[in-house]
């Protein structure tokens, strides 16, 4: 069976805007994604090396700002929702499939390496930017935050600037 077409981008954008607006109205905060990864990192390090988290500054500041279990975090619950939502969407549109998507000109290994390194940069950058495309750029735009919009332009500007050097990965 063929997968169904994607939604019209403007319609999808409108719905996404409504989801974001509802989130702000209900909870006073925007959407996010990378924050949940941060919780996962903190929990993992706490489990593997508990003494380290008591000494290293990053973890100390984190537990000051977020007392209690790092997984007891708004964004963690939200991201669990994202997984469910995306899965449901894939289910009704026939897109559930274990695949490794890549340009025919590169090998699977190259794509995997690209995905890992790309993720690595994104994870690192999202810490500096105090949020990723969702938490800083999109949610920041909704509340007209200077920092969020600056980050948004920096993300897209930089991606355009570097696109040429990585064109072989995609074209």
């Amino acid at each position: 069976m063929n997968s169904t077409k994607y939604m019209n981008p403007y319609l999808a954008g409108f719905f996404l805007g409504l989801v974001l607006l509802a989130t702000i109205y209900f909870t006073g905060r925007g959407l996010g994604a990378s924050g949940a990864v941060k919780s996962a990192v903190v929990v993992s390090v706490q489990t593997v090396a508990p003494s380290h988290t008591n000494n290293a500054k990053f973890y100390k500041e984190y537990s000051e700002e977020h007392p209690g279990n790092p997984l007891n975090n708004w964004l963690v619950f939200e991201v669990v929702g994202v997984i469910i939502g995306a899965f449901l969407s894939g289910l009704i549109s026939n897109r559930l499939n274990f695949t490794l998507e890549h340009s025919p000109k590169i090998s699977s290994k190259t794509r995997i390496a690209g995905a890992i390194f790309g993720g690595l940069f994104f994870g690192l950058g999202a810490q500096f930017g105090r949020g990723c495309t969702s938490g800083a750029a999109l949610s920041g735009m909704a509340v007209m935050s200077t920092g969020g919009i600056v980050t948004m332009f920096a993300i897209f500007g930089s991606a355009y600037g570097f696109a040429y050097f990585f064109r072989k990965l995609w074209l």
């Binding site: 390194f117 790309g118 993720g119 690595l120 940069f121 994104f122 994870g123 690192l124 950058g125 999202a126 810490q127 500096f128 930017g129 105090r130 990723c132 495309t133 800083a136 600056v150 980050t151 948004m152 332009f153 920096a154 993300i155 897209f156 500007g157 930089s158 991606a159 355009y160 600037g161 570097f162 696109a163 050097f165 990585f166 990965l169």
Partner: peptide, 10 residues
């Protein structure tokens, strides 16, 4: 952060 994320994106 934005610049690093942009690289990660491409």
């Amino acid at each position: 952060g934005g610049v690093i994320m942009g690289i990660g994106f491409v």
